[in-house]
Every structure is written in structure tokens, then in C-alpha cells.
């Protein structure tokens, strides 16, 4: 099984100028900052809100592809937003759930994620592209490619192994994160 930062690293091979990433708070944002092209929307707080932020971005930028990278703790805290996103189904919105079954950032306390059968859950929301599996080195490139290139609203749930790399804290002030993103999204093509 792969670790979260290995998957985030692998994701960078699939991104272009047209991709915007929203990362959930804690380790995932730090990994997204250090391992992916910059600038992106790195959430430092607002636990539970990466999907709504991604949904707002997806609706406001139909020509950009928005990928939300969320931990299971964040996903569960804002579980209602899975339904909101599925209701609107923007085809330029992708949700990647990195599920270590833990609040890893705060010390590895258990979440209740293990009770969810993600295939059934995502099926019940009529999500056209959905996949739930253990993240494996052999299949990750294929999995990420299918997920991110699908022409529909898509969700990829990966069970991962906990573990982190020593990475620097995000140096940008939150308002700089905003300024850089607005510049990226409003500059003339």
C-alpha cells in the first residue's frame, strides 16, 4: 500500500497548466505545496471544507479542472458536501480521498471511515466515475490517469498507509495564496 505523499507526487505527472488543486488541512496541504506545481489553493484550516471550496472553484471556472485532495477526516467532517457536489456534478471537479483511516496530522487518532463501503456510498450518489481501492504502486499511474481524465464528475477513494516525509511548512501567508490564485485564474489566456 502507498503513502499519501507518494500518491500526491505521482499526481504531479498528470497535471497541466489547466489544473487547480485544493488540498485539505494538515499534512496533505503541506505535501501538496511541496510536491506539486505552484501555486494552488492550500487550506490551512477550515477542516471539512475542501469539497465546497473545490465546488465553488469548479462552478466559477468551467474551463479549468479542479482536483480536491482530501483526507478521510476532512471528508467525513464535511460529508454533506459529497452530496452537494454530486447534486451539481460539475464535470471539471475531481475528488481524491486519501484514506488512512486516521486523523494522521494530529497524532494518528482513529476516524470512523472504516464503516463506509465507499463503492456503495458513491454509487448511491449516482456519481458517474467512481473508484475505491487500496493504493498500489503498480496501478497508481493508471488509476490517477483514468480518474483525472474522465469527462465526468469523478471521485477516487484510495486506502493508503500512514506516513510522512519531512517537508517544510507552507511559507506563503494565506492572503498571498489568495492573491496568487486570483492572478492565475483571472489573467488573460
Amino acid at each position: 500500500m502507498m503513502k499519501g505523499y507518494e500518491i500526491i507526487s505521482a499526481l504531479s505527472n498528470h497535471l497541466s497548466e489547466n489544473d487547480i488543486i485544493v488540498s485539505s488541512n494538515g499534512n496533505i496541504s503541506r505535501e501538496a505545496y511541496n510536491l506539486l506545481p505552484k501555486p494552488q489553493v492550500y487550506l490551512r484550516g477550515s477542516m471539512g471544507l475542501p469539497i465546497p471550496v473545490g465546488l465553488g472553484l469548479a462552478l466559477a471556472n468551467p474551463n479549468k479542472r479542479i482536483t480536491v485532495i482530501t483526507g478521510d477526516g476532512n471528508f467525513l467532517m464535511g460529508l454533506g458536501s459529497a452530496t452537494t457536489a454530486a447534486f451539481y456534478k460539475p464535470k471539471n471537479l475531481k475528488i481524491l480521498i486519501l484514506d488512512n483511516l486516521k486523523y494522521y496530522t494530529t497524532g494518528g487518532q482513529k476516524t470512523v471511515s472504516s464503516v463506509i463501503d465507499y463503492v456503495k456510498f458513491l454509487e448511491s450518489l449516482c456519481i458517474e466515475y467512481k473508484c475505491s481501492k487500496r493504493a498500489s504502486q503498480d496501478e497508481i499511474e493508471q488509476d490517477l490517469s483514468e480518474f483525472i481524465n474522465s469527462e465526468v464528475f469523478s471521485v477516487l477513494h484510495l486506502t493508503i498507509k500512514e506516513g510522512k516525509k519531512d517537508l517544510m511548512n507552507i511559507p506563503d501567508q494565506p492572503e498571498e495564496i489568495t492573491e496568487k490564485m486570483i492572478l492565475r485564474l483571472t489573467k488573460l489566456a
Binding site: P52, L55, G56, L57, A60
Partner: peptide, 11 residues
């Protein structure tokens, strides 16, 4: 507020 934030990140 999260959705409005995504809109605001877009200018």
C-alpha cells in the same frame, strides 16, 4: 461559506 470562498478564489 466554503463555496463562496471557492468563488472568491476565482476573483
Amino acid at each position: 461559506i466554503g463555496i463562496a470562498s471557492g468563488v472568491a478564489f476565482s476573483g
